[in-house]
Design a protein around this nucleic acid. Structure first.
Length: 109
DNA sequence: CTTATGACTTTCA
DNA sequence: CTGAAAGCCATAA
């Protein structure tokens, strides 16, 4: 049987896999994830992939551990930012002025 | 093929 | 600290 066309199969999967590798209680930036994928300047593309993250996968992909440069929670429509904040707090990530202290919780130095 | 979009990032005023 | 602008990347249309 032939496979159905799977757009962005590689890239999306790579992003999700990289995000799954972020340990509980730790966070990484979009830029760091992009780097891990070999795209030093593909931060926006990572955001695109997470935006397209289906609820089914959201269960096993810790998308809330991905933040913007400096530890800020990326703004977007809906309750996303609020839920992200709650999830982070729930696993012990303290916020400093609404931002994550990357020195302490950043996965990478 | 060309445009437009967005969970980004960095630089500059 | 704010905010604008430009650069970047994968997709969507």
């Amino acid at each position: 049987m032939s496979r159905p066309p799977r757009l962005g199969e590689g890239f999306f999967a790579a992003v999700y896999q990289a995000v799954r590798a972020i340990p509980r209680g730790r966070v990484a930036t979009y830029g760091q994830v992009a780097r891990a994928l070999g795209l030093p300047r593909g931060a926006r593309a990572v955001g695109w992939a997470l935006r397209a993250l289906p609820d089914s996968q959201a269960r096993r992909v810790p998308w809330h551990r991905v933040v913007s440069a400096g530890g800020r929670i990326a703004a977007r429509a809906g309750l996303g930012p609020l839920r992200q904040r709650q999830r982070l707090l729930a696993e012990g990530v303290r916020l400093r002025k609404g931002q994550v202290d990357m020195k302490r919780y950043g996965l990478l130095p």
